[in-house]
Amino acid sequence: MPRITQEQKKLNRERIVQAASEGFRRHGVDGIGIEELMKTAGMTHGGFYNHFPSKEDLALEVYRQGFADSLDALAAIRAAHPRSARAALQDMVDRYVSAAHRDHPETGCASAALAVDAGRHGAASQAEYRRGLDGYLSAITEMVLDHARQAGTEPTAAEARERALGLFCQMVGALVVARAVAEADPVLSDEVLSANRGQLRPR
C-alpha cells in the first residue's frame, strides 16, 4: 500500500477541519460525531486518529481557525473603509447582525455559533475562545477609537474597550437569540436582528 505524502496528509487534515468547522457550527460540538464528520470529509472513521488524538482536540483547532477567519474578515471590512471608521463599524454590524448570517451558521462566525460549546467544554475550549475574543476586542477597540477621533472626541482606552466589548456581546447575543426562534417565529427573529442593528449602528 503506497505511503501517503506529507502534502496529502496536510490536505486531509484541512478537509477534516473544514467538515468539523461546518458541522460544529451548525449542530454543536456534541451534535455531530466523528464518523459523520469523516464521511462528510470523504474519509474513513479510522483515519481520524492519524490527525487528531480526540474530538476535543479537533474542536480546539476549529476554534482557532474559526476566529482567525473571522478576524481576517473584520480586517477586510476595515480595509474597505480606509477613511471612515464609522462606515467600517456600520458595515461590521450590518454584516454580523443579518438574516444571511443567522441562516448560515455553518459558514458564519465562530464567536456566535460556538459560544455555548465553549462554555460547556471546559478550560481548554474557553481558553481558545478567549484568545479569539481578545483578537476581536483589539480590532473593534481600534475602530471605536478611530471613529471617536474622526468625530472629534478622545475617549480613554478603557472607555473604548468597554464600548467594543458591548458591541461584540450584543452582536453575538442578537444572533444567538435570532437563531433560537428563527423557525418558531421568523417575524420575531427578524425583529431581533432589526432592533439590534438599529441600536448598534454608530451614531
Rank of each mutant, 00 (worst) to 15 (best):
G31C: 10
L193G: 03
Q150F: 01
A182W: 07
N50Q: 14
K9L: 15
A87C: 00
D190N: 14
F52W: 09
H51N: 10
R120I: 01
G47W: 01
K39C: 09
L89Q: 06
A160L: 00
K39M: 13
G119Y: 06
R179L: 07
S98N: 04
Q90I: 08
M171I: 03
M92T: 00
G135F: 05
R197N: 06
V177I: 14
L188I: 06
A174R: 01
E14A: 14
L175P: 03
R13Y: 11
A113Y: 02
G108M: 00
T5K: 11
V97Q: 05
E106K: 02
K55F: 07
H81I: 03
E106V: 08
D146Y: 07
I32C: 13
S194I: 13
I140Q: 05
V187N: 06
G198A: 15
A79P: 05
A195R: 13
F48N: 04
L11G: 10
A99E: 15
T44R: 14
R78D: 06
C109I: 07
C169W: 13
E22D: 14
A75H: 01
G152K: 08
H104N: 15
V116Y: 11
N12C: 04
R130Q: 14
E183S: 11
V187E: 14
A75K: 00
H51I: 09
L114N: 00
R179I: 06
D190S: 15
V29C: 10
S111A: 14
K55D: 09
N196M: 13
G28K: 02
G173E: 01
E35A: 15
L74H: 02
R3V: 10
E56N: 11
L11E: 13
L137N: 05
A59Q: 12
E22G: 01
V176G: 04
S125T: 08
P155A: 04
A87P: 03
R15K: 15
S111C: 13
V93S: 03
L200P: 00
A182N: 11
F67T: 01
V192I: 15
D185R: 03
T107N: 08
S98R: 04
V192C: 07
F24K: 03
H45C: 12
D146G: 07
H27N: 14
D117W: 01
R197P: 03
D117V: 01
Q90V: 07
V177C: 14
H27V: 05
I77D: 00
S194H: 12
E142H: 10
E162Y: 07
E14C: 10
T44W: 12
